[in-house]
Amino acid sequence: MKKILLSAVCLAIGASAFAQADITEKEIKEHIWTLAAPQMKGRFPGTKENKKTVNYVVKQFKKSGIAPYNGTYIQEFTAKMRVKKVVQDTPYVKTQNVIGYIEGSDPVLKNEFIVIGAHYDHLGMGGASSKKPDTVAIHLGADDNASGTAALLEIGEKLAANKALLKRSVLLIAFGAEEQGLLGSKYFTEHPTVPLSQIKLMINMDMVGRMNAEKHLYMGGAATFNGGVELMTSLGPEIGIHPFVNHYDVGGSDHVSFYKKDIPVLGFHTGGHPQYHTPEDDRRLINVPGEKLVCDYIYKAVMNVANRPGAIVFVPEKK
């Protein structure tokens, strides 16, 4: 009887561990509810709420078994804040990128990296980038970009649980100060923790929490690497979504900093909405089941590219 009970306990523990390693709606919601809570006051760079966000991401990386790279999760930099045109004094603040590392299993290919990124910052109480610039109120930033940060954490958790299946290595980066002009990703590409020549693809998630009823997922950059368009198109039916696979049209988020360095990119979003850059970008509007589909789609894309036997080659746009 003791042996039977012990076996049952072991099976229960195993099932629990598997569930935690999978991408779940429950965990996506928990991350967004934490990051876009009113108490986080819009996660503005240089504030104590920004630091709380950084600490939260580090805590989740540790919980998932995602290692620091070269001994630290933190890449600190100075960000120049955007101000209204009439304001002369431009403030500078200290903020951070958060970087996690999952080592690939192939002795050769592990020296090549896929970067998965999302910015964690938002607009605080509003300011120059708000669509309601004269309104002083907490800009919660649930879709922009608590949704992308939640996706980063969930995809990272599943990749870490299945790292034995990864041939190439993965860097997970939560970027700071994106809303101030892509400053976190610009700093990383100017001060990379790995040689840029070893980064074979950068995947970015910015506003992935508002999938519509037609299950549309938009992306730019699919043609920036060989086989990208075919891969991203083929994964849609498999997951049950309808991807809009733009060949280039890389948009205006953190992946642009990598594209400017001739690194292939994929930039994902689920479309614009009236709450963009307003205090009304609320966590209650997030389509959590839709975001899980986004995560599942991107996870499969990462596993495919990470295990590709051939070279991943940058393909510039022909003009």
Rank of each mutant, 00 (worst) to 15 (best):
F314D: 10
T149N: 01
P45W: 02
M219I: 11
L196C: 11
A8P: 02
M1F: 13
I74F: 09
D254F: 11
I263V: 12
L293F: 02
A21G: 15
K260W: 01
V288A: 08
P68R: 06
K215T: 05
Y276Q: 05
K292S: 10
P45F: 10
V86W: 04
F113S: 06
I241P: 01
G271I: 10
Y299H: 10
F175Y: 15
M202Y: 10
E291V: 00
N162Q: 12
S130K: 04
S169L: 01
R284Q: 14
H247G: 01
R168E: 02
Q96L: 01
G227R: 07
A151I: 13
I263L: 10
L165V: 02
S64R: 00
Y276K: 03
G156E: 14
G141N: 14
I239F: 07
P289V: 12
I32V: 14
V136P: 07
G184C: 07
L5S: 10
D249Q: 07
Y187G: 05
S105G: 09
D282L: 04
T270R: 05
P279N: 03
D22A: 15
M1W: 14
F244L: 13
K158G: 03
M202G: 03
G71M: 01
E179F: 12
V9I: 15
P91V: 00
A177Y: 01
N50L: 08
I199T: 10
I13G: 04
A213H: 06
P237S: 02
G251R: 08
N97I: 11
K51D: 13
S234E: 09
G221R: 02
I32C: 00
V315W: 04
T270P: 07
V305A: 11
G117D: 13
V305S: 08
Q180K: 09
V208R: 11
A306F: 05
P274L: 08
K319V: 14
H277Y: 11
Y297H: 09
G240W: 05
K2W: 12
A37L: 00
D281C: 09
Q88I: 06
I239W: 08
G148L: 13
G181W: 12
Q75A: 09
P45I: 06
